[in-house]
């Protein structure tokens, strides 16, 4: 999978309450959730995010609640990929389970700024900051997660293996 898009940069420890505040969790409708994505981290984000844009964040992205509504809202808003210095465990697992591509690459995060354009090859983990002309190598996706992705997500994987 290849992506190209403008990046929006966020700080460390962006939690799932900021990604999708609990006041909107009285619905499971993905589009309704996407209308408020990242709202408590940046109130203008839902109105300015365009399909293909990329979220870039610091350490521990997605910490806090286990709500899968968080990666779901990001994916449904059209964000193609999230690049972070690191991800909180439950968010990491949820993102793979629903098919939101995520990559860990501290250097690409540290050296970038909002508005830069990234070109990403999620298969190889190569990230190019086209605005700055720099190339980075993201941490490889663990083999088991690659298997999940290849199967088409967790549900397809378990259907093949266990049912």
């Amino acid at each position: 999978m290849n992506f190209q898009g403008s990046i929006y940069k966020f700080r460390d420890d962006v939690n799932t309450d900021e990604i999708i505040p609990a006041r909107y969790l009285n619905t499971s409708d993905a589009k309704a959730l996407a209308a408020h994505v990242m709202e408590d981290a940046d109130p203008t984000f839902p109105s300015k995010v365009k399909p293909g844009d990329i979220i870039v964040a610091g350490k521990n992205f997605g910490c806090g609640s286990s709500r899968e509504h968080a990666p779901l809202a990001i994916k449904t808003a059209g964000v193609s990929c999230v690049v972070a210095e690191s991800f909180a465990r439950i968010f990491y697992r949820n993102a793979f389970n629903i098919g939101l591509p995520i990559l860990e690459c501290p250097q690409a995060v540290i050296e970038s700024k909002t508005g830069d354009v990234f070109a990403i090859d999620a298969g190889t983990g190569v990230i190019v900051n086209q605005t700055q002309g720099k190339t980075y190598q993201a941490a490889p996706i663990p083999p088991f997660m690659q298997e999940l992705v290849a199967a088409g997500g967790l549900m397809e994987y378990v259907k093949k293996k266990l049912m």
Binding site: S66, R67, E68, I90, R93, N94, N97, L154, M155, L162
Partner: peptide
């Protein structure tokens, strides 16, 4: 703690 898809898979398979 896990997300909803893990719960769905668990409800189906017990694993």
């Amino acid at each position: 703690g896990v997300g909803s898809t893990d719960l769905a898979a668990a409800m189906l398979t017990g694993q």
